[in-house]
């Protein structure tokens, strides 16, 4: 995902000298290449997320297009007031990328998990919120962030995500991409957990359920029309996210269904808790009910 992010950013930085790559002592492995190719377009602020975010606002006001990059948790949770007051309130072109989102940093525990970023950011006016699931979507997110006026947040995982969409992928305008067609149960997934949701939906299909899978790439603005179209006639809608079930994708779908009507909803994510356990992402997902098997079981139970 980082490679995809950086190659897309370098393509843009080549064309537009106002594009800046800002980091806070947590880079990508491609930073030196960026610095070599685009000297004067990269700044390392050191371990200072509030400063980096506030300075990005100052740069944007002065005509630059800064792309701020660091761990999602430090960016969103620590610098939130700067994102709110300096960037979103002023509706300026600061692009923010949170890396290692969800449970990606699985060995270090909740201090390094980014599992409430969607809920807190979603409440901010003017902000566009993108949540790519694969490298191709990450690259598209960078391009979309550049083309979208105003502030944009891109939520990026860090788990060697496999590609679902192929080289020639262009994201749907609605922000919803159907991965598996199915009508009885429709599963909506966002971010890198797509791989687990994909397996879970296949398990459902193997057991005879006509289950579908939709990847949600853009969380805000959310296309509720396209969502309602996708769930027409379904008996159950499921949200799957490496995030709290409060205010994230599950929250978005709840709000749409409560206001506009629609099928019953099962939210799968962290149910008002910090993630338990340490170790491989695979294991931490399993211990928190977010692996394919647990997702499958939760959906089967909800269908009863």
């Amino acid at each position: 995902m980082q490679r995809a992010y950086m190659s897309a950013l370098m393509e843009l930085a080549e064309k537009d000298k106002n594009i800046l790559h800002l980091i806070a002592d947590s880079g990508t492995g491609f930073d030196e290449m960026f610095r070599r190719n685009f000297p004067g377009q990269m700044y390392n602020f050191g371990i200072s997320e509030q400063l980096m975010t506030g300075a990005a606002a100052g740069m944007a006001i002065a005509g630059k297009i800064p792309f701020v990059f660091t761990y999602g948790s430090f960016l969103v949770h620590r610098a939130f007031e700067f994102i709110r007051n300096d960037i979103c309130f002023q509706n300026i072109s600061v692009k923010m990328a949170g890396m290692g989102c969800g449970l990606s940093v699985s060995t270090l525990g909740p201090s390094h998990h980014t599992t409430e970023d969607i809920s807190v950011l979603r409440s901010l006016p003017n902000l566009t919120l993108l949540s790519p699931a694969t490298p191709a979507q990450t690259a598209e997110s960078v391009r979309t962030a550049y083309e979208t006026p105003g502030p944009v947040y891109v939520r990026i995982g860090m788990n060697n995500e496999r590609e679902f969409f192929g080289e020639s992928y262009t994201p749907s305008i609605s922000g919803l991409d159907e991965v598996i067609t199915g009508r009885e149960v429709v599963v909506f997934s966002t971010g890198s957990i797509l791989a687990e949701a994909y397996e879970a939906v296949n398990l459902l299909r193997e057991s005879g359920v006509d289950a579908g899978l939709v990847n949600v790439w853009r969380l805000k603005p959310f296309d509720s029309g396209a969502f309602l179209e996708a769930v027409k006639g379904a008996g159950l809608v499921v949200s799957v996210e490496e995030h709290s079930i409060h205010g994230g994708l599950g929250g978005i779908l709840s709000e749409v269904i409560a206001e506009k009507g629609g099928p019953r909803l099962r939210r799968i994510g962290l149910a008002d808790k910090f993630a338990a356990g340490y170790g491989t992402l695979e294991r931490v997902r399993a211990e928190n009910g977010l692996d394919a098997k647990s997702i499958y079981e939760s959906i089967t139970e909800a269908m009863r």
């Binding site: 506030g54 300075a55 006001i61 002065a62 700067f82």
Partner: peptide, 15 residues
């Protein structure tokens, strides 16, 4: 909100 001016000023001075 206090403590926001210097970060923003640093961004502007850099620009």
């Amino acid at each position: 909100s206090l403590g926001h001016g210097l970060p923003a000023g640093i961004g502007m001075a850099l620009a």
